[in-house]
């Protein structure tokens, strides 16, 4: 039987309560929401917090809305809620593409968006999705709110910009009328972690030239989950198969996969390139030239 070590448990009554508890207990306190990353790690004693702060009652942290030109996703929003959200799918199909392949429907009932990005697992799907979307994280501590671009959010495997006495409250994705987006993943079986995956967000001008592009990579060793070289190569070029192939080659060249039970380095590098091409192709097919849908 897998049982976590002893810990104390508190059910938070407000975000301020969370911050107060985190301050008092220091780095030995951990926030628990869905618990589907943290509880397995506690069972294996890979994590051994002294205090768990349960945020599941903080309804102000959940929900999806559009406000001030941004799609706003509360940190406590469940994966199942994001997948079921018409407004999220309408603006950014990449979110639904990714959610469909994250774990399984029952895990998605419980796991949260904020928990996934704060876990910062190198194989986690939403990290590359939010970096490709150039989302911004809103983090709250004793000094109030501060914002962190998702491209500066990840500090390495399982490490983020969220400090010990802070809590992620929201992710904000700037709306991009007409942009197309997609996420493609290769996994070994239903619900598994990615062998590799890629996400793309593409904006086109009236001539089909790429005006802005975001490319996220999952599970291939990019500390910030972003294929910057491929983006730079694509910006200003006509979105065609030659351009996608060049971007894919750049993504494959610059990623840093490691060999593990999911595959050797050369296979993962090949996937990074090919999935970048496919994500770009699918995102472009969903984009509207000139910015606005007809």
């Amino acid at each position: 039987m897998q049982v976590p070590a002893f810990f104390e448990y508190q059910r938070a009554t407000s975000v301020e309560h969370v911050v107060t508890l985190l301050e008092r207990f220091g780095p030995e306190a951990r926030i628990v929401a869905g618990g589907h990353s943290l509880i397995p790690m506690m069972k294996l004693r890979l994590a051994q917090p002294e205090l768990l702060v349960d945020v599941n009652d903080l309804h102000e942290l959940s929900g999806i809305s559009v406000s001030e030109g941004e799609l706003r996703i509360g940190a406590l929003t469940r994966h199942a809620e994001l997948l079921a959200s018409p407004v999220a799918g309408e603006h950014f199909p990449i979110l639904h593409d990714a959610e469909r392949v994250i774990a399984d429907p029952v895990v998605r009932n419980r796991g949260t968006i904020g928990g996934s990005v704060c876990q910062a697992d190198p194989s986690e799907d939403l990290s590359g999705v939010f970096t490709s979307l150039r989302a911004v994280a809103v983090v709250r501590g004793t000094g109030g709110d501060r914002t962190v671009p998702m491209r500066e959010f990840f500090h390495g495997p399982y490490e983020t910009a969220v400090r010990p006495a802070e809590i992620l409250v929201e992710l904000r994705v700037p709306l991009r009328p007409g942009a197309g987006s997609a996420y493609v993943k290769v996994d070994r079986r239903a619900g598994d972690w990615a062998v590799a995956a890629a996400g793309a967000v593409v904006s086109l001008d009236a001539d089909g030239v790429v005006t802005e592009v975001g490319i996220g990579l999952t599970a291939v060793g990019d500390a910030d989950f972003t294929a910057v070289e491929a983006e730079d190569l694509l910006r200003g070029r006509v979105a065609d198969d030659d351009a996608f192939a060049a971007a894919g080659a750049a993504a494959a060249e610059h990623c840093r996969p490691t060999a593990d039970q999911r595959g050797p380095v050369d296979y993962k590098r090949h996937l990074a390139g090919e999935l970048t091409v496919r994500a770009l192709r699918a995102a472009t097919a969903r984009a509207h030239r000139g910015g606005f849908p007809e």
């Binding site: 897998q2 589907h36 397995p40 399984d104 029952v106 895990v107 419980r110």
Partner: peptide, 26 residues
Amino acid sequence: DTSNCGACIVWMDGLPVKSCTVLAVM
């Protein structure tokens, strides 16, 4: 015991969850 197999699924507040990965106090 690793939230993979689903033998432990129950409903909590009307939604199926894997009860090996939910603390009783939750």
